[in-house]
Design a binder for these strands. Structure first.
Lengths: 122, 122
DNA sequence: ACCGAGTGCTTGGTATGCCAAGCGGGAGAA
DNA sequence: TTCTCCCGCTTGGCATACCAAGCACTCGGT
């Protein structure tokens, strides 16, 4: 059985190919737009290579979707169950808050996590 | 100015290192937990290599954060200068976080506001 | 018929991700 | 002091990401 990761690679590739066809683009057109060689794009779409984040990002941009969507669809960002969505949501809000310094962010997040684990423990 | 991408690599590495130290882990401990060799983790933290998404994911898991957060922090997911507005987004996130008690929410928000006014007064 | 232009895929090479082994230094114990 | 253990970092090599060039096919046009 194909290991879990190959599956996700396949899904990622299929997603990209679907999006490309949805945008009525040829493989070569997209490859040029995304500044990726067409052979490599072909291999990515067939799931036989794992593209780097930079490449995924570039492809996503060319397809007018977010890299987060591509990777998320393929289940490459969130992990199984665990790690409730609430965690990243509020932590991310803190981290992307431009009105705080890095140290303050650390502090807030640290306290936040302490609360959570304390709650989870009782 | 150094290539835009190297910057993000640096941020990613710094973020990982910060999170690791926040979790009071040595580089070797994290490397074993994340199933990544310690030399490579070292290089990643110093921003001189771009890790694959599989590795980022693995590290994220070991740090109890989402891969989305790590990549997002480094600006590797979103493209346009999202700016995020963030103004009261953080408070909203805290208040709607089901994993916190009301008292904890009050406490966090209170600290958060203190930080903001302190910064604004500089 | 032959063509030219488009499609996706294969092939070889170079660059980079990633690891096992080893290095030098700092801190505590005998 | 030396011994031992842990720290982070460097090195050399194998595995994989990525590209330039070329292959095989289809479809309209002449």
């Amino acid at each position: 059985m194909s290991d879990d990761w190959s599956n996700r690679l396949g899904v990622l590739g299929a997603t990209i190919r679907r999006q490309r066809q949805l945008a009525q683009m040829s493989l070569r057109q997209l490859s040029e737009l995304a500044q990726v060689s067409n052979p490599y794009l072909s291999q990515i779409e067939r799931g036989l290579h794992e593209p780097s984040v930079r490449v995924v990002r570039s492809i996503a941009k060319a397809l007018n979707v977010s890299a987060e969507e591509l990777l998320g669809d393929a289940g490459m960002l969130d992990d199984e169950a665990e790690a409730a969505s609430a965690v990243s949501t509020t932590e991310e809000a803190i981290r992307s808050d431009s009105s705080l310094t890095d140290e303050q962010k650390d502090s807030l997040v640290s306290v936040y996590r302490a609360y959570r684990t304390a709650n989870h423990a009782n």
